[in-house]
């Protein structure tokens, strides 16, 4: 579980996160949504420790990253997996080497054991027979799958995804969304997903946090969305005619 308390982060005079608190439970798809510039990416990168926070705390199963020494912090980091918006696969390495990278770096497994683990991870994301290919030879959806496989290679306790389905066609986007949700449930991983894709919200949003102007504007599940009158979430989610119709239908039930 990840507990965020009164998280604040500024860049110069601009305060981007203005005291956000939220809990992210394991086994659920926790979604961070909000308009561009609402602070989603800064929030996620702060959770990952890529941005030092100004105040507040982030507890990873009751461990405060800021209170740990460098070695302990590195060890918590090894429990994290991350799927970046543009996959961030290492260009010079093959698919197999990409997925094997964290295993090479942090385990003492034999080559055979590592290859087995790579095959397992690639099979889990429904990707086989691409071990020898380079990232440049893969489609966007395949790159995302490899990124997920790399992220789960070390059996992470925490999985972070930044816009996991951006740039993908709707069908592949749904597949990737469901894959992340299945993996989170199967391995009981605490998953935090940054998105502004409403399909993802409706498809997998077990727990949704809406950010607006650096503050938490709303929190609930995808089922709560249809019944809330909170103007920020209604404005943000039900902008298209399609979603307005879906909302009406849900409220009528």
């Amino acid at each position: 579980m990840i507990e965020v308390r009164e998280l604040r982060k500024s860049f110069g005079a601009q305060e981007v996160l203005k005291g956000i608190s939220a809990n992210f439970e394991p086994g659920k798809a926790n979604l961070i949504i909000g308009q561009s510039g609402s602070g989603k990416t800064v929030f996620l990168k702060s959770l990952l420790g890529l941005y030092p926070i100004d105040s507040g705390s982030i507890l990873f199963d009751e461990r405060d990253l800021d209170a740990l020494d460098r070695k302990e912090r590195q060890s918590v980091r090894q429990e994290m997996g991350m799927v970046f918006q543009y996959s961030a696969l290492f260009d010079s390495l093959t698919v197999e080497e990409n997925v094997m990278f964290p295993l090479n770096m942090f385990t003492e497994q034999t080559l055979g054991e590592k290859k087995d683990r790579v095959d397992f991870c690639l099979k889990r994301v429904n990707l086989e027979g691409v071990n020898a290919k380079f990232p440049a030879e893969l489609s966007g959806g395949m790159k995302k799958r490899v990124a997920i496989a790399r992220a789960i290679a070390l059996n992470p306790r925490y999985l972070f995804c930044d816009e996991p389905n951006s740039g993908l066609d709707p069908r592949t986007a749904v597949v990737i969304d469901n894959l992340i949700k299945e993996i989170a449930e199967e391995f009981n991983i605490t998953t935090v997903i940054n998105t502004h894709d409403m399909n993802s919200v409706m498809e997998i949003g077990d727990h949704i946090v809406l950010l607006k102007d650096g503050l938490k504007a709303w929190e609930g599940s995808r089922h709560d969305i249809f019944h809330t009158e909170q103007p920020d979430i209604v404005d943000f989610v039900f902008t298209s005619e399609l979603f307005k119709t879906i909302r009406k239908a849900n409220r009528a039930e």
Binding site: M80, G81, M82, F106
Partner: peptide
């Protein structure tokens, strides 16, 4: 392309 961030997140 965030490859350096990916290394940092892994703890490298």
């Amino acid at each position: 392309s965030e490859q350096i961030d990916a290394l940092e997140v892994m703890g490298v």
